[in-house]
Amino acid sequence: MVIINYVLMCIIFGTTFLAIKIGVDSGLPPFLSGGIRFFIAGFLLFLIMAVKEKNIMRLLGRKELFLSGVGLTFGTFATLYWAEQYVTSGIAAVLSATGPMLIIVIQSIILRHKVRRTSIVGCMIGVIGVLFLILPSFSLEVNSYWIIGCFAIILGEVFYASGTIYTKSVSKNFEGIHPVALNAVQMMYGGILLFILGLFTEEISAQTIIQPASLLSLFYLIVIGSMVGHSLFYWLVVKTDPVFPSTWLYISPFIAVVVGVLFYDEFFSWLTGVGAVTICIGMILINYETLKERVIAQRSKYIKV
């Protein structure tokens, strides 16, 4: 069951990038659609968790979860949704996989944490991979919005990395609360901020929202992407450990590239492929020691049993 759910989670996370692309291409305002997605998904998950855990109502209004929502949802997805107007879903997925690399950068440069040598090498390889991804734009035609979109996604991953570090540091304030409930509240906060940004910066048309492609995109992202995908992730965290489910970052970008090329006729070149592989190798190196420690711990656990 673990393997089946893991594969399903990777497929879901890998296809959400194309679902976003289909939505914005159909005319959905990026910020508004992102706000609708995350608020509704977070609200529904919160209602489900409220039935199981009566004490989670106190989570509403907590400053820590608001700040987590700014980093993990608002900053990360405001840039991603905007960028997917100009960047293919496959490249968006690969660039989004740089999140762990930026966590290492922030921890080492800003927080002055000691960083393993393999993580430093992984970061360098990841940067090279990003350069490989951006090179095709210069070999074909210089598209300023394409390049800005790529860097916008990386900026979003800075928000993600900062939000992840902050959330981890304040997690002790919420001991005994299920992670799904915490995630639901931060998604609601991030969704509200995205919605407000959309109201002030985008032209809203009901006719655009009710188009079949727009509705299908929203439904898939709300129900399958946010509710099912994240529930599978947290189920895997409980059943295995925090590291194993996170390895979706190494698999889903390839799924996103393949799905985009096969079903949406997205551009693909050998440089794009090299960049995707290089970035994923860098991400594996960054997390190599952690993965190694987890494998040893699991092996020792089974030996004792």
Rank of each mutant, 00 (worst) to 15 (best):
I11A: 10
T15H: 07
T15A: 08
F17V: 09
A19C: 08
A19W: 00
G23R: 02
D25T: 11
S26M: 11
S26Y: 06
L28F: 04
P30F: 08
L32T: 13
G34R: 03
I36V: 09
F39G: 03
L44Y: 12
L45K: 14
N55S: 13
I56D: 03
R58A: 14
G61A: 14
E64R: 15
L65N: 08
F66D: 02
S68I: 10
S68V: 09
G69R: 15
T73F: 11
T73A: 07
T76K: 07
F77L: 05
L80N: 05
L80D: 01
E84R: 04
I91G: 00
A92M: 02
L95F: 01
S96A: 06
M101P: 00
I104T: 05
V105G: 01
L111P: 00
H113F: 09
K114N: 06
R117D: 15
V121K: 14
V121M: 15
G126V: 10
I128D: 01
I134S: 09
S139D: 15
L140V: 13
L140W: 15
E141D: 15
S144D: 05
Y145E: 06
W146A: 02
A152G: 07
E157K: 05
V158M: 04
T164Y: 01
I165G: 03
I165M: 08
H178P: 12
Y189W: 14
I192L: 10
I192K: 14
L197C: 04
E202A: 04
Q207F: 15
I209P: 03
S214H: 02
L216N: 03
L218S: 04
F219P: 00
I222T: 03
G225H: 04
S226E: 05
M227R: 10
V228W: 04
G229T: 03
G229R: 12
F233E: 04
K239L: 05
D241R: 08
D241K: 11
V243C: 00
T247R: 07
P253S: 01
V258F: 09
V258M: 06
D265W: 07
D265E: 10
L271N: 12
V277I: 15
V277E: 05
C280V: 15
M283C: 13
I286T: 12
N287R: 12
Y288K: 10
E289F: 13
E289K: 10
V295P: 08
A297V: 11
K301N: 13
I303N: 06
I303P: 02
V305L: 15
